[in-house]
Nucleic acid binder design. Sequence first.
DNA 1: CCTGTAATAT
DNA 2: TATATTACAG
Length: 579
Amino acid sequence: MSDEKAISIESVNSSSPRLEAVSVLVVDGDSACLAILSRMLCNLGYKAVMTAKRAYDALSIAQKQEDELHLVLTEAHLPDMDKYELLEKMKAVSKVPVVIMSDDDDENAMLGGLFKGAVFYFVKPLTINSLKNLWQFAFIKNRNHVVIDLTEEESSVYGESQQENTSNEGLESDSFMTRDRWLKIKKPERTYKDEDKENSDSTSQRKTKIVWTNELHKRFLLAVRLLGVDSAHPKKILQQMNVPGLRKENVSSHLQKYRLSLKREQEAIMKARARGPKKSKFPSHQSLSTLNFRGGCSHTLNRYSTSTAYQPKRRSHVQDLSSHMSRPSPAGSVRFPSQVYSSGHPTLGNELSFPSMPYHSTYKNGQPTLYNQLDYTNYHKTNHIGNRITSNKELAGFRQVGSFVRNSNFDGNKNFSTFGDHDHSNLVVFPIFLHNSTQQEEQQQQQLQPQVLFSSPLQMPSPPPQTQEQQENDILGQERQLQPQFLPSPPLQMPSPSPLPAAAEQQGEQDDIFGLEKQLMQSPQWHMPSMPSMPAAPTAHEQEKDDMFGIESEETDDLFDIAKGTTQHINDADFVDLW
DNA sequence: CCTGTAATAT
DNA sequence: TATATTACAG
């Protein structure tokens, strides 16, 4: 392995064979620079060097040559587009990695560029070595990364060891970043061995933990439904969900849990029904939820906990579900107390009514079952710094069911704050930005690329606390505005018109569901870049915590996580355009 | 290789 | 607790 490494390093110094396979598009408004750069690149042996003086040219080239183009090297300031605008538009057109070069060595500028999707930011003047090594970025293309490990000093602030997240890719001084990144960026190929040596973390480090917010869960459910049971496998689901940063393992894990919850519900229902049809119906939301969460019946369901171990047939539930899942619309829609964010997000209340389970009536043995109607009472919300997480009943229930069953000694009065994760280690909260752009930019984008707003997850370096704050103010400021999902009017990015009127929640969801499905189909890539940290400011909105308690403590936890940069969260904001 | 499941780790 | 990871069986 060390051989391997030696070789790659060497190849960087001399002309690399890989370099010869890489074609580059150089974009610079300055003809002279353009000429020089392209000349240099040519001389270095790059496979092909194209040039563009204007951003639009670059875009069209990228679009036409998507397969042929491996890398874009662009000046930050182009005559026909604003700073970084090309980056964003480029994302819509091609996945080609973009490297920025600029005179501006301001950290904020750099971060901004990276945050907008650049894979690297060169501060001019570029050296010949830089160009020689440039090819490496071409290999980033298919990297389905996200990752961001933020880290460092922060943890020490909290007295935690940082051995874990040493692999920060991020925020470092230019030179440091350059070197470090280059080492990392190299194709994983078979160099993992030596990585092992350098940063033991990178290999074995636990992946960032995502938080299954209700939104994400809904996304998940939609995906499952859209796919139909037969193909509702992790991979497909993942694909369908289209949430950058979400990994198959996440989905698998969630799916596993989801199924478990379904199964248990089924069993619970069956049990109940067998017991006494009279009161065991669970037709109303409360009954079951209460049951579950209040722990009233813990004993009742208790047995399932043990059964988990070895149940002859598990497939069965899954199969069962299938029938449900494939059923498009519920008979009697579940009526959740229209839950509206105090934030004033009108449609979210509606979303919540999305059945998490198989739909309402199912025929089992010829008998309609209504178990699907159950709702979960444990409505609660969590505030994370800047991101509000609202658990919907389903999700909560979904979660709760599992936990409930597991805990035989369930305390009826206990608060179940399912979202608070007290594990400070590696929790990741993905804030979801609207495409990493301001609303205005967003609109511009829409005009140009109404439907395809593709953007890839960005790596967000995490600077030390104080600095970070400042930087954020400048760089992330824009995004932050989007954070609170109090967007006045959901910027719909898809053709599909009419955002669901708030009134919708009063009609059956069926229509909505379909509508949503459609929208979902066309759209959406989610954006969940990881965020270094969120100022507490947005949190100010003490929206409605009318539901659950135990929020405060969670907040605190999240603060820690976020401060450490290890928390990612999925923000509701991105749902705006979906619902 | 991909799934689903269970067990276990964090 | 919730989620991740791993091992293993199909």
